[in-house]
Nucleic acid binder design. Structure first.
Length: 501
RNA sequence: CGCGGGGUGGAGCAGUCCGGUAGCUCGUCAGGCUCAUAACCUGAAGGCCGCAAGUUCAAAUCUUGCCCCCGCAACCA
C-alpha cells in the first residue's frame, strides 16, 4: 500500500555554523525519506534556512554587507554539507525567497481579516544591550544588561483563543507530539492560561524581516515567518494541487529546544488558517559532547565535515542513526564513534562480507554457488531473513531507526554464528555442495541486509549490491542469483586502528 | 506541595501496561577457530533491578512513602 510521506527538518538559522545536531536531524529526515521511497511511498522532503531576525541584521552590519548578501554568502555552508552528506531533499526553502515572503504576507493579511490579529500596547522588560524584550526569568538570570521597562505598540495574534482546541487535539491524537514525555510536557505547559503572541517588531528596532502588509512600520516576528515555510514550500496560496497533495505534513522533525514554537505557535496558526495539523511533531534529543553540552564557548563543537573526511559519509550516517536512542539525548565521543564503527561495520558487517566472498573466490571459482537443499540451519537464517523486512519497516514507520538498525545487525550476528557452526572452509574439503549452500545463505543474508541498510548507507550498500550482482533487488528471501561472478574488492569498512595506551 | 520523565552488573539501553528463571550491545577475563579487516565463535566474572514498607504462594514489574538525577515553566533563534 502506498502512503504519502511529507517530512520536514527545521529551517536552520543561517548564522549558525552547521554542526552535528543539524546533520543529525537532516540525516534522520533523509533516512526516513529514502526508506519511504523504497517502500513505494510518495515522498516530499523539505529542509531550508531561516534568514530573518536581529542576529542576521547585526552580523551583516558588522561585515558591512546587506543582510541579503550576508545570507547568500552563508547559505552554501549548509547546501555543501547536505551534498556531502548525501541528503536527498526535494526542496530547499529560504525565508528570503519571494515565494515564501508573498505567502507570509498573504497569511498575515488573512489572519488579520479574520480577526485573529489586533493591535495592543505591550509593556515589558527590555534589554538595551541585547535590543530585545526579555522575560522575567531572563532578567533574573543576570545575563542581560541595561534592563528597563518599555512600552511599545505591537500586533498580537489571538493564540490564546485556541488553547482548549489545541489541548483537545493533543489529547485525541496520542502520536501527535512525540516522544510521549514531550507530549506530557506540552500538556503541562497548556494547563496554564495561554496568552496571545506578539507577532510584530517595529522597523525602528528591527528592519530585517517580512513587512506586515497592513502596517508597513512593522516587520513580522521571525517565528511567524519561519514556521510558514512548511506550507509555503509545498505551494500554499500558490499551487493548490501541489498543496493538497502534500499537506498536512507526515512529520516535523525538530530538536527538543523548539518544541513549544511548533506545538503551540504553529498549531494555533494553522487553526486560524483553517488548515489541518501535521500528523506528528517529533522532538529528538541533543548530542552531548561526552557529558557536556555542545557549545561554541567550550570549543567542543564537532564539525560534521571533519568526520566525513576521516571516516566516510556512510559511517557518519550510520553512527548518528544507531547511537541516538529515540527521543533521548546521546553522547558523542571520538572513542565511541570508533568503537561502534569497528564493531558493527568493520567487524560484523564488512568482515562477514569479506570472509564469505573470500571463500567463494577460493573454493567456488569466484561464482556465487547454488542455494541447494536447505537444512534446519539454513531455514533458521532464512526465517529470520523473511521476517526482517517487515520488522524494520514497522520500526522505521515509527521513527525507531536505532532499533531497526539493531534488528539488521542481529541478522548479521546470527550469520556470523551460523558460519562458525557450519564451517564452510572445512566443508569444502568433503562436500563442496554443502559448503556452497552455506555460502549462498550467508551471501543472501548480506544482500538482504544491504538492501535494508541502503537508506542509511546509500554509498556503501550500492557497492555491496553491485558486487553481488543484486542492484535493484528487493526484500524477498532468495533473490540472490547463483552463478553470478563475485569480483574481489578491498575491505568495505576498514577497521580504525587505535594505538593502545 | 507547579508539571513531567527517569534511577536495571564498568558504559549505554530493553524488560515495568498483562507480576512467575533479569535480557541486548560495548567493555573485562579465559578458551576455541584459523575462511576473514589481530576479525569471528563459545564460556565466565560482574546486578540484593535508587531506598523503605505493603499486597501476594511469588514483585524490576502492583500500592504507599522517601531519596537522587534530568526536562518543561513561551513570545532571542
Amino acid at each position: 500500500m502506498s502512503h504519502k510521506f511529507y517530512v520536514t527538518t527545521p529551517i536552520y538559522y543561517v548564522n549558525d555554523a552547521p554542526h552535528i545536531g543539524h546533520a543529525y536531524t537532516t540525516i534522520l529526515a533523509d533516512v526516513l525519506s529514502r526508506f519511504h521511497r523504497a517502500l513505494g511511498d510518495d515522498v516530499f522532503f523539505l529542509t531550508g534556512l531561516d534568514e530573518h531576525g536581529q542576529k542576521v541584521q547585526q552580523a551583516a552590519e558588522k561585515r558591512g554587507l546587506s543582510p541579503k548578501q550576508h545570507c547568500d554568502e552563508l547559505a552554501p555552508r549548509f547546501l555543501d554539507l547536505w551534498k556531502k552528506l548525501g541528503i536527498s531533499n526535494d526542496d530547499f526553502v529560504r525565508t528570503t525567497e519571494a515565494r515564501h515572503i508573498r505567502v507570509v504576507q498573504d497569511i498575515l493579511q488573512k489572519v488579520y481579516d479574520n480577526g485573529d490579529i489586533y493591535q495592543h500596547e505591550y509593556e515589558g522588560l527590555y534589554s538595551v544591550a541585547e535590543e530585545r524584550f526579555i522575560t522575567e526569568k531572563e532578567a533574573e538570570s543576570g545575563q542581560f544588561r541595561e534592563i528597563k521597562r518599555l512600552k511599545e505598540k505591537n500586533w498580537f495574534f489571538r493564540m490564546g483563543k485556541y488553547q482548549e482546541r489545541l489541548i483537545r487535539h493533543i489529547e485525541d491524537h496520542p502520536g501527535f507530539i512525540r516522544p510521549e514525555s514531550r507530549r506530557n510536557e506540552m500538556l503541562g505547559f497548556l494547563r496554564q492560561p495561554l496568552g496571545d503572541l506578539c507577532i510584530s517588531r517595529p522597523k525602528s528596532r528591527l528592519a530585517w524581516g517580512i513587512e506586515i502588509p497592513f502596517d508597513r512600520d512593522y516587520v513580522t516576528y521571525v517565528w511567524f515567518d519561519a514556521l510558514i515555510n512548511y506550507i509555503s514550500a509545498p505551494g500554499y496560496l500558490a499551487d493548490d494541487a501541489k498543496f493538497r497533495r502534500w499537506w498536512p505534513a507526515t512529520a516535523h522533525l525538530i530538536g527538543k529546544d523548539i518544541l513549544t514554537t511548533h506545538s503551540v505557535y504553529w498549531t494555533t496558526m494553522l487553526f486560524s488558517l483553517g488548515l489541518p495539523l501535521p500528523e506528528c511533531i517529533f522532538a529528538h534529543g541533543w548530542w552531548l559532547m561526552g557529558d557536556s553540552k555542545m557549545s561554541k564557548s567550550l570549543g567542543n563543537v564537532v564539525k560534521p565535515l571533519d568526520l566525513i573526511e576521516q571516516h566516510g559519509v556512510d559511517a557518519v550516517r550510520y553512527y548518528l542513526m544507531a547511537e541516538m536512542i529515540l527521543g533521548a539525548d546521546a553522547s558523542f565521543t571520538p572513542e565511541n564513534f570508533i568503537k561502534r564503527y569497528n564493531s558493527d561495520l568493520a567487524n560484523d558487517f564488512g568482515n562477514l562480507l569479506n570472509r564469505v566472498s573470500g571463500l567463494i573466490a577460493k573454493n567456488h571459482g569466484g561464482v556465487i554457488p547454488p542455494a541447494g537443499e536447505a537444512t534446519a540451519a539454513e531455514e533458521e537464517i532464512a526465517a529470520a531473513g523473511r521476517t526482517l523486512g517487515a520488522k524494520v519497516e514497522a520500526l522505521v514507520r515509527d521513527f525507531k531507526v536505532d532499533q531497526a538498525l539493531n534488528e539488521i545487525m542481529n541478522l548479521i550476528r546470527a550469520v556470523n554464528k551460523y558460519m562458525e557452526a557450519q564451517a564452510p572452509w572445512k566443508l569444502a574439503k568433503t562436500d563442496l555442495a554443502a559448503a556452497g549452500r552455506v555460502l549462498y545463505t550467508a551471501t543472501e543474508a548480506l544482500r538482504l541486509s544491504a538492501v535494508l541498510l541502503s537508506a542509511v548507507m546509500p554509498e556503501k550498500t550500492a557497492v555491496v549490491l553491485d558486487i553481488l550482482g543484486a542492484k535493484g533487488s528487493g526484500l524477498q528471501w532468495g533473490e540472490l542469483k547463483a552463478g553470478t561472478a563475485l569480483p574481489t574488492f578491498p575491505p568495505l569498512f576498514p577497521r580504525i586502528e587505535v594505538e593502545k595506551q
